[in-house]
Amino acid sequence: MTSPPSGDAVPSTDEEKLKTPSPANDGPDDDELQPEMSLIDHLLELRNRLLKMVLATLICFAGIYPFANRIYLWVSQPLRDLLPEGQVMIATDVTSPFFAPLKLALVLSVFVAIPYILYQLWSFVAPGLYRHEKKLAFPLLFSSVVLFYLGAVFAYFVVFPLVFGFFTTVGPEGISEMPDISSYLTFVLKMFFAFGVAFEIPIAVILMILAGITTPEDLAAKRPYVVVGCFIVGMLLTPPDVISQTLLALPMWVLFELGILFGRLARRHTEDAPADEAP
């Protein structure tokens, strides 16, 4: 028998295994592989997506602005219903009747366009994510939008009637309450934002657990400090009254507990995943 030429040596079995790529590689899907983009290409893509976000916001604004006055009346309804008979909201600035509804329409346009804005951000970063990251990122992204809207709805239907009911009854006798429309709008927008961000606590807790920053057991052990922190945050983000502070602190604590629960489930899912799918 003649041995094969030295230049055509047959690789051993171990060498073949090392050189053969694993079919279960945790990289991007084959159909998702794209040519490597330069920094300029990335910047151009980011610019295009930012322009799409701005355009979507402007389109929403164009559709909302004609109804800005009606929307302002709806937003101010919780306070106007509690004002004594004969007392109304006023405008202390000459430009307030124009700029207050305009500001409200612009902010509402951003709120309405948030799903599309987040979709554009997702489309920008998704090609660089692995499969297991995509499986977790999209549900968290969708949940964050829903929770933000739920926070704003909770503020309008639950917090506003109680807070304004308290404020309209504690004033001295002989003082007529005539809230300024600009001051009221600033107040309610802060409340919408505060409750919207507060309702994102489960997402923040899950991300910290998945990133390995902390564990559900550590968070559960620090529960007393978290409860105190919730009331401190409620004091800082809401008006100086016990009602609004408590109405923000209690949901934050409940959402923190939900974050621990879902964080345990998410961690168990990643631990039970195959080795090629685990982070």
Rank of each mutant, 00 (worst) to 15 (best):
V146E: 00
F148S: 01
Y149A: 14
G151M: 04
G151D: 04
A152S: 10
F154N: 01
A155L: 06
F160A: 03
P161H: 06
L162E: 13
F164V: 10
G165N: 11
F166R: 01
T168P: 05
T168A: 13
T169S: 14
G174W: 09
I175A: 11
I181T: 11
Y184P: 06
L185C: 08
F187A: 03
F187N: 02
V188C: 06
F192T: 00
F192G: 00
F193K: 08
A194W: 00
F195M: 07
G196Q: 00
V197S: 10
V197G: 10
A198N: 02
I201E: 06
I201Y: 03
A204I: 07
V205E: 01
I206Q: 15
L207D: 01
L207K: 05
L207I: 13
A211F: 14
T214M: 12
T215W: 07
T215R: 03
P216D: 03
E217A: 14
A220L: 13
A220K: 14
P224L: 10
P224K: 11
P224N: 06
C230R: 02
V233E: 09
L236W: 13
L237D: 04
D241S: 07
I243P: 12
I243D: 06
S244Q: 06
T246N: 04
T246G: 15
L247Q: 09
L248S: 04
